[in-house]
Design a protein around this nucleic acid. Structure first.
Length: 334
RNA sequence: GCUGGAGUUGAGCAAUUGGUUAGCUCCGCAGACUGUAAAUCUGCCGCCUUUGGCUAUGUAGGUUCGAGUCCUAUCUCCAGCA
């Protein structure tokens, strides 16, 4: 997608990933180009994730108390990341908002899962302190050089355990972070209680970012209702590339045979560029022909669907009709 | 007309020297995807009453304990020759 396409659908911000940018093109190159936003031609606020999540998703990662060792999925080279190196890289990349280097914990509520959650939470907190320390030092350098300052969010963890979430939220609430990421969550219905709980503890005056959430419309409703300010999620674009498209009546797989001769838009109520100009039939054809435009048009649609839903939620809050809107939307979608 | 080669699922191909192969890749059908190793992955894809069973290799016979494979006839296609 081009920056214009993102702006046109109402996208306000972009999140990039430190792990991926270190591998290519390198955080030093992004710095030399003038920083993340300038490098990609975007005139708006940017985030970087710390690379902590890759601890969870990469195989053969060695985790020590000082950091992680892993291999590049591109050339197999041996690399490492620590709270300090993540902060240095994020300052080079130069997004407006950085994430502390954290250790996300796996799912589960068994005794083993609990022991693991306790252990990793301790590491997350330790790394958060180091992240904050190095971040503040790097910001001091920016100040000396009359460069813009950057913000750092701490990332709350604790798995599925309410007492650990409480301890983590309390730990972070007392530290001088600019905002908070909430990590390690995966299902809005299951996690709603934890979310309510944590956000009662985290300072109301600081923004909260729900890391990785937003694949399901219910994520947006539950998050916003309980004090989440920003989201990031790969699902709308990944699912778009794989032919799964959002409609107000639920998700569809556009490659299904029933759409072959369907000459209506993906969703007749959608106001996106794709729905204004293309039919389900044509988009299916692009997917089956493996034409890359399919990915673009589908991504425009899915991202617009998400952004528009948030716009509608915002309006419903203003007009004091949030709960009615939520109920009607979710009932129809699911 | 003669000579040679080839016919296996919608397509393209495997299947050891006659010995467990209804096998592979596409296509097709459906599902999944949550801080991006993902334009990816998974299942199904001859028939049935499906933890199994049955029937297949152009067609009709034959040899053999056993045939996609060997033999005979025949049909179709391809190449060369006339």
């Amino acid at each position: 997608m081009t920056i214009n396409q993102i702006s046109d659908l109402g996208g306000q911000s972009i999140l990039a990933n430190t792990y991926h940018l270190i591998l290519q093109p390198g955080s030093d190159l992004v710095a030399a180009s003038g920083g993340l936003a300038k490098f990609m031609g975007f005139d708006g606020p940017t985030f970087t994730d710390s690379g902590g999540f890759q601890i969870m998703s990469l195989p053969k990662v060695k985790i020590t108390e000082t950091g992680v060792e892993f291999r590049s999925h591109i050339d197999g080279s041996k690399l490492s990341m620590t709270p300090k190196s993540s902060m240095v890289a994020q300052h080079q990349i130069g997004a407006d908002i950085h994430m502390a280097f954290d250790y996300p914990v796996g799912y589960g509520d068994t005794d083993t899962a609990r022991a693991n959650a306790e252990k990793t939470l301790k590491i997350t907190h330790d790394w958060a302190l180091q992240s904050l320390y190095h971040h503040q030092k790097l910001n001091q350098n920016h100040e000396k050089n009359h460069e813009p300052l950057q913000a750092l969010y701490g990332v709350v963890q604790g798995g599925e355990f309410q007492d650990l979430r409480e301890a983590s939220a309390k730990f972070f609430a007392e530290l001088d972070f600019d905002g908070y990421g909430i990590g390690g969550m995966y299902d809005a219905r299951k996690c709603e209680n934890l979310l309510v709980f944590q956000n009662q503890i985290l300072p109301e005056s600081k923004p909260r970012h729900w890391l990785g959430m937003g694949a399901e419309p219910i994520d947006l409703f539950v998050g916003i209702e309980n004090g989440i300010d920003t989201f990031d999620c790969v699902a709308p674009t990944r699912q778009a590339r794989n032919g799964a498209l959002y409609t107000y009546d639920g998700r569809i797989n556009i490659t299904n045979a029933r759409f072959t001769r369907d000459f209506s838009p993906i969703d007749s109520e959608c106001d996106c560029y794709t729905c204004a100009n293309y039919t389900r039939s044509y988009i299916q054809h692009l997917f089956k022909a493996k034409e890359i435009l399919a990915c673009t048009l589908a991504s425009i649609h899915n991202e617009r669907f998400v952004v528009r839903t948030v716009e509608q939620i915002r309006d419903s809050i203003t007009s004091n009709t949030f709960h009615e809107f939520k109920e009607a939307f979710l009932k129809r979608y699911y």
